[in-house]
Nucleic acid binder design. Structure first.
Lengths: 163, 163
DNA sequence: AGCAATAGGTAGCGCTTTGCAACTTAGTGA
DNA sequence: TCACTAAGTTGCAAAGCGCTACCTATTGCT
C-alpha cells in the first residue's frame, strides 16, 4: 500500500522495487501459483491456501488493480467470480519457476511428485538460468554492468527471439 | 518466523513455499540485490536501502541462518562485518533477474541507465525465459505436469548442461 | 594513555499489517 | 419460500515494521 521507497542510488534503477510493489506482500506469490494451476474462485483460493478471507480479498483486489489477474463474474452462475491470469501475470511465470526451483533444490524434501514438462515432447523443462544473447548459460561471474549506449551491437537474432 | 503453512494439497509440493520462507519477508529481496551489487557492510545496506536498523539486523541474521549470506568479521578492522553471498545465495540470481525484468517491463519508467551484459562479449543478456531441454523458449501454453516416472527419457545432454 | 568517532547492533514504543471469527448480501435450486 | 452457496466485509487481537535513542567494541588521533 505505502509504496516501497527507493533511495534512487542503487545501480541501474532496478525494476525490482516495482515488481515487489505488486508481488512483495505475503501470499501474493502463492495466490499466483494457485492461479497458474487453474484455481479461479475465491473459495478455492481460500481453502487451498488456508489464507484468511479478508486478506485474500485484499490481495486479489490488489493483483487485479495491477493487471496481474482479471476479475469477471461467471456467466452461468452469477454468484461466482473468476480470477484469471492476464498476459502480464503469465509473464511472471519465469520468476515464479526460478523461485520454486531454488526452494526445491535447497530443501531437504524428496523429489516432487510432479514435474513440469514440455507438452510437445513430454520432457522435463530445463532449470531457469541466465543466458547470453546466444543462449549460453551464464553464471554470476560472467556478468557485468554496461551503459545502454556502449553495449556491443545488439544482435538481430536476439531481438527476434525475445518476442 | 512462523513458518508459512502449506496445506499440502497443491499440485507438486511446489518448493515455492520453501523459497518464500527464506525470501518472502519485506526487504529480503532488496537486501540480496544490494549484496549482488557488492554491498557488504551493515551501514551500507542501511543507508542504501533506507531500512530501519533493527529490521535490517533481523533480515541479515535470517539470511545468514538460511545460508544465503555469510557473515564474517573484517580482518583489518574488527569493528566491521562483511556479509557476502554464498553459492546458495548466488543461485537466486535467475529469480531476482526474472522479477527485475518483469518489473522493468511493466513500469512506465524509461530504459534503465545500466544493463547487464555478458562480460565475455559485452552483449546484453537474454531475458529470463522458460526453456525446454533443448533450449527452445517455452510459454505458459507449452507446459504440462507429469509424474517423474513417466517422463520421456531424460536426455543426457540436458543433464550435462544443468551442471 | 585519553578521547572522539565509527561500526554494528539492541531496546522501547507507536503504527500498520495480518489472522480469526462472525456477519452480510446476492444468487441458486428444491 | 427457504436452505444453501459464493464472495465478500467488519471488529478485534496478535504479529510485524519503523523510528529514535541507546549500548558496546574498535579504531585513530593527539
Amino acid at each position: 500500500m505505502t509504496q516501497l521507497r527507493e533511495p534512487l542510488s542503487l545501480i541501474s534503477e532496478c525494476g525490482l522495487p516495482a515488481a515487489l510493489e505488486v508481488m512483495g506482500e505475503r501470499w501474493s506469490f502463492l495466490i499466483l501459483r494457485a492461479a497458474f494451476n487453474g484455481f479461479v474462485h475465491f473459495e478455492d483460493f481460500s481453502s487451498e491456501l488456508g489464507i484468511a478471507r479478508n486478506i485474500l480479498s485484499n490481495r486479489l483486489a490488489r493483483l487485479v488493480d495491477h493487471g496481474v489477474l482479471a476479475r469477471e463474474r461467471c456467466e452461468h452462475d452469477k454468484r461466482k467470480v473468476e480470477y484469471r491470469m492476464t498476459d502480464k501475470g503469465r509473464e511472471l511465470l519465469p520468476a515464479i519457476l526460478a523461485l520454486r526451483d531454488w526452494g526445491l533444490r535447497h530443501s531437504d524434501s524428496a523429489a516432487p511428485n510432479l514435474v513440469l514438462v514440455d507438452a510437445r515432447d513430454g520432457k522435463p523443462i530445463a532449470p531457469i538460468t541466465i543466458r547470453a544473447h546466444d543462449d549460453r548459460v551464464l553464471e554470476w561471474g560472467d556478468l557485468a554492468w554496461a551503459e545502454p549506449g556502449d553495449v556491443a551491437t545488439a544482435p538481430a537474432e536476439a531481438c527476434a527471439e525475445e518476442a
